[in-house]
Design a protein around this nucleic acid. Structure first.
Lengths: 211, 211
DNA sequence: TTGCGTATGTTAATTATAGCACTATCAAGG
DNA sequence: CCTTGATAGTGCTATAATTAACATACGCAA
């Protein structure tokens, strides 16, 4: 339909809408409106309609949206109609936390392999998945046709792990190491930097008066 | 120059600049330029200058920026000239990971208290800090004059923890629970939703063609 | 001391994003 | 079957953010 550029902010909100709709659906509610969704997730009704309008017409004028239906549509838009195979590299505290994070599996992200450089960790089993050495990364990831890599290794190793992931055929990488990574343009990369989040807070708490 | 609204995107970039400058400084480099910073963190030189221009003039025309100096300035802008007292609520896998995360302490965020609802966890010591029961939260947080709360509890308890944190006088909250929280406008709130990050990736991997 | 090269700070233009207001459409009830 | 109330979809407006362009100021060397 449209090859219009979609704002990333819209995608993030869609993800939140879908989560909200899952909750609403669980309560047995059949129909909802842009206003109700807006209240539920803290944006304006116009924003909700605008976001959805990028992708088609999912509602009925004068009535609203069918909850199940809209949820399904958004899930499909986000690419969540089928499961995704995910690999996790790095089983430090953060990696361990990520491996047990329920939110991933709930949304169809299945961790199919785990790797770590530490020989002491290799061989252990985390959440039912055996931790493998890094030198098996390429083979296993390629074999599983894993498309998403999560990087939870120390900053100094992040780039080399990313390079290996790319060589192994992943299409997207979620990076938790606080470094700037070089990836070719066709690879999707997102960085999550926990300290940055705190720093945005402190800036705002200072009331932007500290300087 | 004052009381100008600063884009949040600018703050996030400043945080990244400061990290980059820390690295550069560690290499013993004295002077840098907007172009070098831009290369280092993957934005445009104009963007770097624009971001800095919100807060003053830190460079010398024809020369560039003094690394140490600029870094110091940015740190002050972000409110990082002094340490911050942080409380962590929830010692599941994620909470545990956060408590050991080096990035926090490096940037002056000190976890001064930890709480959990689970009696089995209360009394244990995490990273040198004793885990306390939730009912001591208000007293301890108030006593420590803790200004930042990190919420790493299951979604269904997040709102009630947040309410308690606010009652205890915190100014800012970093929330890891995937729910929309209600807070009064004077409280700074940031949400980190790990699944949302993956979903932005999958949307982009689908090439926005899935729908 | 003066001119040149360079990188900043700033203003202007472009682009992107969000908000608003209007219009079209549907459901329900008399 | 028509009227009324409600709400999605959409074009336009305003606001925000990024990019580009330019003029200013500094260091250095002749």
């Amino acid at each position: 339909m449209k090859t219009l550029k979609i704002p990333e902010a819209t995608i993030i909100r869609l993800s939140v809408y879908s989560r909200h709709l899952t909750d609403v659906d669980r309560k047995g509610i059949i129909t909802t409106s842009s206003g109700e969704i807006a209240d539920g997730v803290g944006v304006s009704p116009a924003q909700v309609r605008k976001d959805l309008a990028y992708f088609g017409e999912f509602g009925t004028r004068g009535v609203g949206y069918n909850v199940k239906d809209l949820r399904q549509h958004i899930m499909r838009i986000l690419g969540l109609s089928a499961d995704w195979s995910v690999t996790l590299v790095g089983v430090g505290n953060l990696g361990l936390a990520l491996s047990t994070y329920k939110g991933f599996r709930d949304r169809g992200f299945i961790i199919t392999s785990i790797f770590d450089a530490d020989p002491k960790k290799v061989g252990t089993v985390v959440e039912g998945v055996k931790v493998l050495p890094i030198d098996q990364l390429e083979t296993v990831v390629r074999q599983n046709r894993t498309q998403i890599g999560i990087v939870a290794v120390p900053s100094e190793f992040a780039q080399e792990i990313v390079d290996q992931l790319i060589k192994s055929g992943v299409a997207a990488i979620l990076n938790f190491a606080p470094v700037v990574l070089n990836v070719p343009p066709e690879i999707e990369l997102r960085n999550v930097d926990l300290a940055v989040n705190l720093e945005v807070l402190t800036f705002n708490v200072c009331g932007q008066r500290c300087y």
